[in-house]
Design a protein around this nucleic acid. Structure first.
Length: 140
DNA sequence: GCCAACGTTGGC
DNA sequence: GCCAACGTTGGC
């Protein structure tokens, strides 16, 4: 499956992920987003989106663990996964590009701007890769 | 900096 | 259980 996760690059960016090599994607405190994490599986593919100043999809990452209780949470029901960087978009795919193309009208990133974890339809994943000059085949 | 969209909290 | 008040996120 394909997913998209958001991060404010001022807090934790794609470059931070590359520097760390691997990270625990934690801190999600929204039930809808939590439920998506719950459905994640090892080896699922992630698009990493920079909110705020960038507003662009900047890279592809991979989930390397099953979901587990978020170690940073006070409550037991919040979940996290471990992820590793896979490929950087040489040309980030911006939110405005997605909106302008008109083909992403029901993509949660466009429709529900505050959701921080969301599933990505394979067709959308392909289109986004192509817009970012990346061959999608190796991830399908 | 503003505001829309949500989520949460607390009074009733 | 409803809703007003408030806080947060994120796009513009």
């Amino acid at each position: 499956m394909f997913w998209l996760v958001k991060t404010d690059p001022e807090t934790y960016s794609w470059d931070s992920l590359v520097r760390d090599g691997k990270t625990v994607w934690d801190g999600v405190r929204n039930f809808q987003a939590r439920n998506f994490i719950k459905a994640m599986k090892q080896n699922d593919i992630l698009l990493v989106y920079h909110s705020q100043n960038d507003k662009a999809i900047v890279g592809i990452a991979k989930i390397v663990s099953e979901p587990f209780p978020d170690p940073a949470a006070n409550e037991p029901y919040w979940l996290a996964v471990e992820i590793i960087p896979v490929k950087k978009f040489l040309k980030p795919v911006t939110l405005s590009q997605l909106k302008k193309s008109g083909e992403f009208a029901d993509f949660p990133l466009v429709r529900q701007s505050r959701l921080s974890v969301m599933p990505v339809e394979p067709e959308y994943f392909k289109k986004i890769c192509i817009m970012g000059n990346i061959q999608p085949e190796e991830f399908l």
